[in-house]
Amino acid sequence: MKGHALPFLWARGLLAAATAWKALLLALALNAALALVVTAPLASRLHDLLDSRPAADGLAKGWDVVLGAHLIRSEPGLLGDPARLGALERGTLPLADVPRLSGPLAGLFAAGLLHAALSALLAGGFAGRFAAERERGNLAAFLADAARLGLPSLFIGLVGLAAILGAFFLFVELPRAATLSPDLRWDWERTGLSLLRLLAFLGTTGAIRAVVAQSRAALGLAKTANPFLALASGAGFVIGRPVKALLLEIAFGVTALLPLSLWLYFAPSWSGGDVRLLALLVAGQQAVVLLRIVARAAHLGAATAWMRGAREAARPAPAKIEA
């Protein structure tokens, strides 16, 4: 197998991520802490509402549609503005209304933005470490790289976000009415066109994210922290190898989502009683989130290895040294 073959790159990415395990744990801690902060007021309110109510037994095992409706109706602001929540559920919330969410949803949105920004900064650290020859697991060096490359990495992330939002508007929002039109004769036409919209969006997003990954890899490998040069380098790299870049993106996407899917499908739900089971489930959940973060970092590791290898391959061979 060639050094740049997809499985090889995938494995190299995971190995690179494993060497930065301290940084990965730091990312997990950030994620968990933010989640705790966001959900703490909601959890407290739930205790106020449910602890003294025998009807809550029906909610312990899982969601009860009827009881849940009664809960939301009696506490309309529990999750935030019900009208906007309903629109969000139906996928009809205008983008402009998202910042005006209230209650825990507003907290989630703010925390999400913060998490995205922090992740982008940390990606700078990962890019620096994966490009380094040694001390990949050194947390101090990781933080130094994050400080040095964090802002350019954030800028690259913002460019990517803008591109993804553009793709969303272009492929999902703009043709929505046309693909859901009641004038379409057959059901499969509507389904097919809707899936085509989704596929076009996912394909474009995948390409954008591949560019972002390669740009960050270029940022780490470059001597200067110039995000424009890195973006140009990343875009050029992906344009030269679009299929493989997309496949790499898909491979790490599957790597990230597989543990979550397996967990959601197979993991038991805690509905009281055994505290040891709760501890075990919490540990399992953290492992799932960690694997998602690992997949994220590993993608960058693979991108760095791939770009470095490609550059080395392109360099002219050294002249033979005569004895």
């Binding site: 989640a35 959900t39 909610l59 989630l108 990517g160 709760l278 919490v282 997949a295 994220r296």
Partner: peptide
């Protein structure tokens, strides 16, 4: 039980935000 479920959901939603910010990984 619900606080526990919501925390896990939030952790994964936060990861989704990281995805929206075009960070590598978890595209699909």
């Amino acid at each position: 039980a619900w606080a526990h479920r919501l925390r896990f959901l939030t952790q994964n939603l936060l990861e989704l935000f990281a995805l929206l910010a075009a960070l590598p990984g978890a595209a699909l």
